[in-house]
Design a protein around this nucleic acid. Structure first.
Length: 321
DNA sequence: AATATAGGCAACCGCCAGGGG
DNA sequence: CCCCCTGGCGGTTGCCTATAT
């Protein structure tokens, strides 16, 4: 654009802030407010450009900034919002009090994105990746586990991990097949979901508010990027080959038929956020290290929301045949 | 103990949009 | 309507620390 960077001006300091500079900036803003950022450095006695001051204040010195690790709730919120808004960090930050867009962006890039990739999800679309290479890490891990088995045939962990890796590969393949089918009706489903006036068709509160705030975001021109939301997807998957995908009859303890708890979620896919929360939950219990902790969470433990039946071989065969 | 590598995060850069003259 | 200024945003860089070799 031709406009020179503001900090190029003669001898303005760049790089990390010292505590003295921080103190000057904080004291000035507390007394006078920031006013014009361009004028502030001179008035505050700082050898910085205004932009640098603004960034330092908004990202670090502001008194209402929350520090420390992101909570599970915050992670969930970020995932939900990112699946809807994409890389609109400032918009996402408005829903996370005390968190800055920079902090959220960094957290996404260093943690959440990697987790999604590791799980075989495309971090931009939040949908399962369909390219062959995305499964390679898992297949390699599987091969390594097989190797491990040979050398430690009685190692229970190895046996369990290998079994879980197998489940993961199955799961990814199934997701691929499901997605292929669902893509066909995805646009229609989204239209129905968003336009429905039926009170039985509910949306998550955060999505409701987002839709109200950003109607354009919910326009249906970009349906291929719509995330696949369902809080406990696979509980709706049928083990009965007569029952089509996406509709599951469950039974209560008396053996009576239960309707699905929440019939509004039409997509047969898991949400990345629900999966991740499961992983967060379970890795906090059994820390098996990065790669294995993620795969282990797919195994469908009691709290995971991934029914054991999903991983039954005969079911896979029914589905795939 | 020394070095290499990876991860995390603060800060910078370039671009864009909105407002005022 | 145009131009300039300012604030804000998202992408990227580079430093620091932790971990592995």
């Amino acid at each position: 654009m031709g406009r020179s960077p503001c900090c190029d001006e003669n001898g303005l300091k760049k790089g990390p802030w010292t505590s003295e500079e921080d103190e000057k900036l904080v004291q000035y803003i507390q007394k006078h407010g920031h006013g014009s950022w361009r004028a502030l450095p001179k008035l505050a006695g700082l050898n910085r450009c205004g932009k640098s001051c603004r960034l330092r204040w908004t990202n670090y010195l502001r008194p209402d900034i929350k520090r420390g690790k992101f909570s599970q709730d915050e992670e969930q919120t970020i995932l939900h919002l990112h699946s809807v808004l994409g890389n609109k960090w400032s918009a996402i930050a408005t829903h996370l009090p005390g968190r800055t867009d920079n902090e959220i962006k960094n957290f996404w890039n260093t943690h959440l994105k990697k987790k999604l990739i590791q799980m075989g999800f495309d971090p931009m679309t939040h949908q399962p990746r369909t390219d062959l290479f995305s499964s390679l890490p898992h297949l390699l891990a599987l091969a390594n586990l097989g190797d491990l088995m040979e050398h430690h045939p009685f190692d229970e962990n190895a046996v369990r991990l290998q079994a879980e890796a197998v489940q993961l590969v199955k799961l990814q393949y199934l997701q691929y097949l499901l997605q292929s089918a669902a893509n066909i009706t995805d646009r229609e489903t989204n239209i129905n979901l968003l336009n429905s006036s039926n009170p039985a068709i509910k949306q998550k509160p955060v999505l409701n508010s987002l839709q109200a705030e950003n109607p354009a975001t919910f326009s249906l021109g970009n349906d291929t990027t719509q995330p696949l939301h369902h809080p406990s997807l696979l509980s709706h998957l049928s083990s009965d080959p007569q029952v089509p995908f996406g509709f599951q009859t469950s039974f209560n303890s008396q053996g009576d038929i239960n309707p699905p708890e929440d019939s509004s979620w039409l997509s047969p896919f898991p949400t990345t956020s629900s999966l991740l929360s499961t992983i967060i939950e379970e890795t906090s219990i059994s820390n098996l290290g990065d790669a294995t902790s993620s795969t282990s969470s797919y195994g469908g433990g009691a709290s995971s929301g991934w029914p054991e039946l999903f991983f039954d071989d005969h079911i896979m065969q029914e589905i795939l045949s």
